Computed example of a mutant assay.
Amino acid sequence: MIDSTTVRARFPRYDVVDALRGAAMVWMTVFHFCFDLSHLGLWRQNFLVDPFWTNQRVLIVSLFLFCAGLGQSIAWAQGQAWGRFCKRWLQIVAAALLVSAGSYVMFPQSYIYFGVLHGIAAMLLIVRLTSSWGHWLWLTGLLAVLSPWVAQMWLGGAGEDWAALMNGRSLNWLGWITQKPFTEDYVPIFPWLGVMWWGMAAGQWLQRVHSTWLKAKLPAGTQWLALMGRWSLSYYLLHQPILMGILSAFVWLTKR
């Protein structure tokens, strides 16, 4: 049996990558805290159409998926076996199903059926299978990012039947839609696969040309970000119930 010390030696982590993921967690937490304030009527904001909030969401998801691509490039370079990959992948799938169940309890009309964890699970498989594409990952990433706009133009002239098919739940997880579905979180394959492909391409480039950047030490006082990044899945699952619980308790106490 391989002990934990041997595993860490064979598959070392890079604090810089973990800290970048941790920074995304902090940003996400602030965003969700503001969303919860609005949901509970403590601070009215329009998270659906206000560019201040919609653009932040795009940037947060982009940072998450870019980090996922970076992490996968490191795992691929370290020769991670399919068994080890599948173990982590199944954890993400289980977490995605848990998010769907929890969101259905809270938002039955707009529960999350293909959110960020669902998207990550699907995209990780694709990125893993295309790890050997090398420089082509930059181009395929660009095509993936642009594909929803191309699909919208095509669907605009293809007729209502095609648009209805792509907008339906059976296929809207692809992202080639003309109407965004009513759900609390929606991270389809396209365009987001392109961001993860770019993360994979950037990670391969860094390891080939600037490997010392990945091994750099974090500035003093920022190591906690790396710790958050290492436990990102657990933190993601727990932070929102805790935030909502604390704020709901505050609303209940103030109304007594």
Rank of each mutant, 00 (worst) to 15 (best):
residue 96 A to C: 07
residue 32 H to G: 03
residue 1 M to Y: 13
residue 75 A to S: 15
residue 46 N to C: 11
residue 152 Q to D: 10
residue 44 R to E: 15
residue 7 V to G: 04
residue 18 D to N: 09
residue 183 T to W: 04
residue 1 M to C: 09
residue 127 V to W: 01
residue 38 S to F: 00
residue 161 D to K: 08
residue 195 V to D: 00
residue 118 H to K: 08
residue 5 T to R: 15
residue 84 R to E: 11
residue 13 R to A: 13
residue 194 G to F: 05
residue 58 V to Q: 09
residue 178 T to Y: 04
residue 46 N to Y: 06
residue 133 W to D: 02
residue 194 G to S: 13
residue 52 F to S: 10
residue 111 Y to W: 14
residue 216 A to D: 07
residue 201 A to P: 08
residue 34 C to A: 14
residue 127 V to G: 01
residue 139 L to E: 01
residue 152 Q to S: 07
residue 91 Q to P: 01
residue 250 F to L: 15
residue 23 A to K: 02
residue 207 Q to G: 13
residue 195 V to I: 15
residue 38 S to P: 02
residue 125 L to V: 06
residue 228 M to I: 09
residue 23 A to P: 00
residue 102 G to S: 10
residue 213 W to P: 04
residue 252 W to Q: 12
residue 133 W to P: 01
residue 132 S to E: 03
residue 64 F to E: 01
residue 122 A to L: 15
residue 101 A to N: 09
residue 142 L to N: 03
residue 109 Q to R: 05
residue 176 W to S: 04
residue 242 I to T: 11
residue 48 L to A: 12
residue 98 L to Q: 12
residue 230 R to Q: 07
residue 53 W to L: 08
residue 13 R to G: 13
residue 228 M to L: 15
residue 147 S to N: 09
residue 115 G to H: 00
residue 173 W to T: 06
residue 107 F to R: 06
residue 246 I to M: 15
residue 251 V to P: 02
residue 115 G to M: 01
residue 133 W to M: 06
residue 158 A to R: 05
residue 113 Y to D: 01
residue 109 Q to F: 11
residue 180 K to T: 10
residue 223 Q to E: 14
residue 101 A to I: 12
residue 248 S to M: 03
residue 18 D to M: 05
residue 121 A to C: 06
residue 159 G to D: 09
residue 165 L to A: 12
residue 222 T to C: 08
residue 36 D to M: 02
residue 196 M to S: 03
residue 212 T to D: 11
residue 87 K to Y: 11
residue 122 A to E: 00
residue 196 M to I: 00
residue 71 G to D: 06
residue 176 W to H: 04
residue 153 M to S: 12
residue 111 Y to A: 09
residue 87 K to S: 14
residue 26 V to I: 09
residue 91 Q to T: 11
residue 160 E to R: 15
residue 159 G to W: 06
residue 157 G to I: 09
residue 227 L to A: 15
residue 32 H to I: 03
residue 10 R to M: 08
residue 33 F to V: 15
residue 133 W to G: 02
residue 79 G to C: 12
residue 176 W to Y: 09
residue 197 W to C: 10
residue 252 W to D: 06
residue 105 V to H: 12
